[in-house]
Design a protein around this nucleic acid. Structure first.
Length: 577
RNA sequence: CGGGGCGUAGCGCAGCCUGGUUAGCGCGCCUGCCUUGGGAGCAGGAGGUCGUAGGUUCGAAUCCUACCGCCCCGACCA
């Protein structure tokens, strides 16, 4: 491909709307242009990168036995009413009415459509298992789209759905996807981890997220330094604590005046106590009902864990005003003793003794509080957010916190959708049974953004070779010289014949501009045909990632480059290949 | 949806507070000359419903009102 005939509108200046580096570089490099909030045009270069990811995904899904199909973007409301999600999904689901007054929506995901297909077309256990997938544009009306391709409203997604006859078989389908995902992200050249995750609104029993490690990630992960344990902090289990040995008699309950002190720190300073002796009482609204969550004074409540402990669908921290309105209690002086609310305690709290807590009375706290003696929570369990100081729940090793970008998510769905939508097959005994389902997503366009977040420098993008729109860019640095131009053209042709994807920069531009553009758009290998060729018959070969440069005679250049590219590709093969 | 900000040439911005010639600047674009190894230089040029609608005024990019769009923070989220 000739640069002069491409559309690669690069810019020197960074557009003001872009906050994160992938967004900036995608705009500057001429990969995308915004049409409207959260909706982007993929220019030729951007589309090429997305197609690279899509092709890897396709190959690995096919290899894992999945079948590609393509479902409509427009979906009838009736299906969503059957699954119950027409009510549940909320405003993220873009709904509209067509000319016949039929309610419809743009598909943010396709469980309903695929389940409808399955109940029509899959009647017998003999047809199972089946795993069907598509690579398609999704629309979710995000509250606040941001970060370019990282969180758009419209985006390219691979979604797959598995149908099995039993839990056990569904587990195998899940494991097969777990492996396929490892192969996919490995082949994309990304640093990533699979982590235990919360199942979110899609529901289901078990799930893993695939996170690309990058400092701009929207999620926080814990990773064990010793074993393979990794989890989203929303989910990360905190190892249960041992109950402390009781030395001496437990203190008696005692009310102390703590004027104007609401924060744990200030009361702690006043009473010359450590925050770890406190019981912190946080009021949350669980599906609108106030509940009290107890954690140690120096800990934080993890709301997703609270939600799961309560079995609620929505949990949010109540603000001071709401707390007072709903309970009449003074914020800052709340405590579990005599609290007329449902109380959920972190198991660490239950192991504490001689604690300090609010007295549920303005300007007063209690000391000598004994969990179990002075109050008994309705539920106690794992409630607090894990910290880097905690030990690995799996092996006891030390933990590290890091940021990640979610690029893939796999779920065991069970029979939630098949039962709601009456999607059944006949088993060996002729009995109708609901499909046991799984669903598996990959944010294809987000993978491109994540790859850039993880691979860039001050000059621009550094694409992992498998995702690069072109593997090699040949710079003709002497467009006025027939000899140089001829050599550059021939080299580009030779490289193409060796199976490489080549961009030939044949523009009548000064060398500096060509270098800058080549760096910006992140092509892994750059070949310069110019002065050195005129003087010595050699071309210079430069690797984008580390700037490593070598000079080779023109007649050997194509072969050298091809073997370099092949050698590098070999690093991105999937495990066990 | 709550809070904040912005809409002036393709992009980035100044001008607005304190209304008054022909609305500027940088980048980009076009023509010519010159130049050619890290976004050159000179000369000439094209390009604007100043987001939209209404109002105030002799006169509005500038003041007022409404609406639209976009960005940032928050809640939310595969």
């Amino acid at each position: 491909m000739r640069y002069s005939q491409m559309l690669i509108p690069t810019t020197k200046e960074t557009p003001s709307e872009a906050e994160v580096v992938s967004h900036q570089l995608l705009l500057r490099g001429g990969f995308i242009r915004k049409l409207t909030s959260g909706v982007y045009i993929y220019l030729p270069l951007g589309l090429a990168a997305i197609q690279k990811v899509a092709q890897i995904v396709r190959e690995e899904m096919n290899r894992a036995g999945a079948l590609e199909l393509l479902m409509p973007m427009v979906q009838p409301a009736d299906l969503w009413k059957e699954s119950g999600r027409w009510q549940k999904y909320g405003p993220e689901l873009l709904r509209f009415i067509d000319r016949h007054s039929r309610e419809s929506c743009l598909g943010p995901t396709h469980e309903e459509v695929i389940t409808d297909l399955a109940r029509r077309e899959l009647q017998s256990y003999r047809q199972l298992p089946k795993n069907l997938y598509q690579i398609q544009t999704k629309f979710r009306d995000e509250i606040r789209p941001r970060f370019g391709l990282m969180r758009g409203r419209e985006f390219v997604m691979k979604d797959a759905y598995s149908f099995d006859e039993s839990d056990e078989a569904a587990g195998k389908s899940y494991d097969r996807m777990f492996e396929a995902y490892h192969r996919i992200f490995r082949r994309c050249g990304l640093q990533f981890r699979a982590v235990e995750a919360d199942t979110g609104t899609i529901g289901g029993s078990f799930s893993h997220e695939f996170m690309v490690l990058a400092s701009t990630g929207e999620d926080t992960l814990v990773i064990c330094e010793q074993c393979s344990y990794a989890a989203n902090v929303e989910k990360a289990r905190v190892a249960p604590v041992e109950t402390q040995e009781r030395a001496g008699e437990p203190q008696a309950l005692c009310r102390v005046e703590t004027p104007g002190m609401k924060k744990v720190e200030s009361v702690a300073a006043f009473l010359k106590a450590s925050p770890s002796q406190f019981i912190k009482t946080m009021i949350y609204l669980a599906d609108g009902e106030p509940v009290a969550a107890l954690v140690r004074g120096d800990r934080e409540v993890q709301p997703v864990k609270l939600k799961n402990l309560l079995g609620a669908t929505d949990v949010e921290l109540a603000d001071d005003e709401t707390v007072f309105k709903k309970t009449g209690l003074p914020v800052g002086y709340l405590g579990p003793v005599g609290l007329p609310l449902r109380v959920v305690a972190d198991h660490e709290v239950m192991a504490m003794r001689d604690c300090i807590a609010g007295a549920n009375q303005k300007q007063y706290h209690l000391t000598g509080v004994q969990p179990g003696r002075d109050f008994t929570p309705a539920i106690s369990g794992d409630l607090r957010q894990i910290t880097a100081e905690d030990r690995c729940p799996s092996c006891g090793g030390s933990l590290r916190l890091t940021e990640g970008i979610e690029v893939g998510h796999i779920f065991k769905l069970g029979t939630a959708y098949s039962e709601a939508m009456n999607a059944t097959f006949q088993d060996r005994d002729g009995q109708a049974r609901p499909f046991v389902m799984g669903c598996y997503g990959i944010g294809v366009s987000r993978v491109v953004a994540a790859a850039i977040e993880q691979n860039h420098d001050g000059n621009g993008i550094i694409f992992p070779l498998p995702l690069a729109p072109f593997q090699v860019i040949v710079l003709n640095l002497g467009v006025n010289s027939e000899a140089v131009t001829g050599a550059a053209e021939r080299l580009a042709l030779d490289l193409r014949q060796l199976g490489l994807e080549v961009l030939l920069d044949d523009r009548d531009e000064r060398p500096g501009s060509k270098f800058k553009d080549a760096d910006l758009i992140g092509i892994p290998y750059r070949v310069m045909v110019g002065k050195t060729f005129e003087k010595e018959g050699k071309v210079e070969l430069r690797r984008r990632r580390d700037g490593h440069t070598e000079t080779v005679p023109i007649d050997q250049a194509a072969g050298v480059i091809a073997s370099l590219v092949r050698a590098e590709f070999a690093m991105f093969v999937a495990p066990e290949e």
